[in-house]
Amino acid sequence: MDLIEIITTKPVLIGIHLGFAILAIDAFLWLLGEMSHSPWQTRRLRLAALIGVVGYAVSWLAGGYYYVKFYGSLVKPIIKAGSAPWVHNIIMETKEHIFLFIIPLAVSAALITWLREEDWQALNIRRSSLILVSLVAGLGLLIGLMGFFISAAARWGGGA
């Protein structure tokens, strides 16, 4: 079994998807803390933003591959035949589409960290910057919560 085969197995893909999403959420929460305190520690701000963007990108790739390759044929039929088919119809359908909002928002938030603090203050975008960073972290948390519902419906939706 080569490395690609190992990475593309179901539990490893889910682990990468979830693990990197948690890393990205943590990085954006870290960025929120760094951004709200003066003086800015530029290196830490940019590191947090970079980890966040890369984390979400890797999570998107791993989750997307799992969704396209395995979810439709293995997980969706179990949920649809179980006691909570609405979990697929509402939660999964919403999750898979709102995930597509994250990367552009995360890159936009990351670009703010490339400003100098005095330029950031001069632009008068403190409030909107903090809301944007909170939204990027919050969207990740919301998607994680949706993932819990989907996982629970697949495991226990049959009423066993």
Binding site: H97, S108, I125, I131, L135, L142
Partner: peptide
């Protein structure tokens, strides 16, 4: 500065309203 602030607010509101619209639709 006004345009930068406006673009950030637009990004935030588009995402929030998009989430609500998709959730309500499904």
């Amino acid at each position: 500065a006004r345009k930068v602030g406006m673009s950030l607010n637009l990004a935030i509101w588009s995402a929030v309203l998009g989430i609500i619209a998709i959730l309500l639709f499904f």
